[in-house]
Amino acid sequence: MSETAIQIRNMNKFFGTFHVLKNINLEVAASERIVICGPSGSGKSTLIRCINRLEEHQDGSINVLGTELDDNVSHIDQIRREVGMVFQHFNLFPHLTVLENCTLAPMLARKTPRGDAEAAAMRYLERVRIPEQAAKFPGELSGGQQQRVAIARALCMAPKILLFDEPTSALDPEMISEVLDVMVSLAKDGMTMICVTHEMGFARQVADRVIFMDKGEIVEEGAPADFFGAPRNERTRQFLNQILSH
C-alpha cells in the first residue's frame, strides 16, 4: 500500500449556519487519481478548496502530506507550496506575461533563481504545448490556452498534489479536449490528482476512484467500472442518468 497524500477525518464546514460539508471522510493515496462529481451546490468545490485552505473547515481534521492543516500560518504556507490548484476561470494574472505568471511563485515562495525558474517554466509550457506564447499576456490567448498556462503555472511549483476545480466548465466545447489531454498525460506520469469535473469520459479513462457528492455528503465512491456500471445509490443513478443521457 502506497503512502497517504491526503487524509480528511470527520470534517464539517459551515457557511454561517448553512452546513455545506457534512462529516467528510476521505483518504487519498500518493499517485491516486480521484474524480469528484455531483450536482451543483453539492459541496464538491468547497471540499477541494478546504484542502489548501481557500476555505476554512470548522470541525474534524485535514492532513496533507504529513502536515496538519490548522491555524498555523507556516503549516498553511507549507501545504500551499506542495498543492497546486487549477481554477474554473483560470485566474491568470493579467498584468504579467505567460512566462512571468509561471515564474512568479517559484521565485517568491521557493526562492528559485530567475534563470532556473524560467528554464523550468519553459519546460512546463512545452509540456502543455504552448511554449511559443511565453511572451504574451493572458488576455491575448484563447480560453483553452489560458487554462493550459494555468496548469503550467501550477506545475512550476513542482507540487506533489494537483487540485482541479471544474477546469473545463468555462471553456468552449472545441477547447475542452486540449485541456483534458494535458490532464490525462499528467495522470499517466503519476501525479496525485483530485478533479472536480463533469467530464465522465475523463473519469472513466484515468480515475482510480470516482466520488459522488450530494447535499454536502459523500454519497458513493468506487472504481469507475463499478461506479458507472452498477451505481448502488438511487441519487447516484439519477445524477448519472441526467448527465449521461444527452
Partner: peptide, 26 residues
C-alpha cells in the same frame, strides 16, 4: 475578481507578496 487573490494564495504567496505583486499593481 476574487480569483486573483485566491490564485495567489493557492500558489503559496504570502500576504505581502500577494499584495505587492498581484493586488496593488492591478
Amino acid at each position: 475578481p476574487s480569483g486573483q487573490e485566491e490564485a495567489a494564495r493557492a500558489l503559496g504567496l504570502t500576504y505581502w507578496q500577494r499584495t505587492s505583486r498581484i493586488i496593488l499593481p492591478q
